[in-house]
Amino acid sequence: MRLLDKVAIVTGAASGIGRAIAVGFAKEGAHVSIGDINLEGAESVADEIEMLGRRAIVVKTNVAEASDVKRLIDITIAEFEEINIIVNNAAMVGEPPLTCQEISEDTWDQVLAVNLKGVLLCSQYAVKEMIRLSRGGKIINISSISGEVYIGIAPNYHVSKAGIIMLTKAMAIEFAKYNINVNAIGPGLIESPATKPLLDIPECREFAKNAIPLHRVGQPEDVVGPALFLASKDSDFVTGQTIFVDGGFLYSHPTVPTNYYP
């Protein structure tokens, strides 16, 4: 097992990609602390992890609130005595309207607070413990292809995910001397509660499939492998990177009609 008895915090693990990573880590031997605002979903993931014979706790956490984050870290330390890995996955898209002309200041602030400041806060508090214990650590931030290219989701969402790519580099340099690796994953279109409204429209699903060279929509499990790599010692010399997991979408602008991939 690649993460035997490691302690991992996964935020936003009640559903989607976070859930898949939490369960995937447990299958490789990790104990998991789940920080989420959705307690019901988080509890069911914790149950699933305990069925695998690993320990799991749930802490109700809004990652945009420093007091919540501090509590998540304190309870995790009280329960498991250390933190080896933190996956900053919690994120939101925000309320429409979602154009630069119409977006409200509140929506802008809210999405940036959860998606970007949340990554900073969780990392700040987790790193304190990692440094105190002097055993290094792994920070994995979930960005997105929307941090690299504009695909019309919402300006604040794109900006938050682009910010994560740079924050990952900043933290990677700063934390290197503590032997803490900081990397990001940039998922493409992944089947999850967040993308369900889009993928429920048959035309959208078909269009998306055709625009993705591997010709399918990703599953949350597709993100688990890269996350495991970044959480394990296999990636000990990797830091500051963003790994895109997108079926080839990002670097495959359709130069021939999108329905043609040989």
Binding site: L250, S252, H253, T255, V256, P262
Partner: peptide, 11 residues
Amino acid sequence: SGLGLYGGACW
């Protein structure tokens, strides 16, 4: 070219 950065099928 833009094609120096991203892939194009048949290019």
